[in-house]
Amino acid sequence: MTPPPPGTPHEPTFGHELPPEESPAPSKGSIRILQLYPRDMNIYGDWGNALVLAQRLRWHGYAPELLEYNVGDAFPADVDLIVGGGGQDSGQLVIKDDLLSRASTLTELAEDGTPMLVICGLYQLFGKFFKTRLGSVIPGIGILDVETHGTEERLIGNVSVSSPEFGTILGYENHSGQTTLGPGIAPLGTTAKGTGNNSSDGQEGARYRNIVASYLHGSLLPKNPDLSDFLIRTAVERKYGTFSPGQPDDSYAVLAREHAARRPR
Rank of each mutant, 00 (worst) to 15 (best):
D80S: 09
V118Q: 09
E173H: 08
D112C: 05
K131G: 01
E68L: 07
T180M: 01
G142Y: 11
G171P: 03
P76I: 06
L125R: 15
L125Q: 08
S101Q: 13
G171L: 03
Y69K: 12
H149T: 15
V71M: 10
E111A: 10
A186S: 13
F126H: 04
A192W: 14
D73A: 06
T190S: 13
S90L: 15
V118E: 03
R102I: 11
I185F: 00
I95C: 14
V94I: 12
L122E: 09
S101M: 00
L144R: 15
V137K: 04
G121K: 00
L188W: 11
Y69F: 14
V83N: 01
Y172A: 07
V137S: 12
E152H: 08
L188A: 07
V71H: 06
N70I: 12
L117D: 10
L125D: 00
P76E: 12
N197C: 01
G72H: 13
G194C: 07
Q124A: 01
I143L: 01
K193V: 02
G142Q: 08
T148V: 11
G157T: 09
P139N: 15
T195N: 10
Y123H: 13
Q124L: 06
G184W: 13
D80P: 00
D89F: 11
E165K: 13
P187F: 04
P76N: 11
P187C: 10
L188Q: 05
G150V: 09
G196P: 04
Y123F: 02
S104I: 06
D145C: 08
I95R: 02
Q92N: 09
T179N: 03
I82H: 09
I82L: 12
S90Q: 12
L93C: 07
L188D: 13
R102K: 11
S101K: 11
T179D: 09
T148N: 04
G196N: 10
S90N: 14
V83R: 04
G87Q: 00
L134E: 14
F75T: 01
Y172I: 08
Y123T: 09
G177M: 11
L122H: 06
A103E: 15
G113P: 06
L155H: 06
S160F: 06
F166T: 03
L109F: 11
H175M: 12
G157D: 00
Q124V: 02
P187Q: 07
G167M: 00
K96L: 11
A103M: 11
L93F: 12
S90I: 08
T148E: 06
I138L: 11
D145R: 15
L81D: 03
N174R: 04
G167D: 04
T191Y: 01
L170P: 05
E173S: 03
D89R: 01
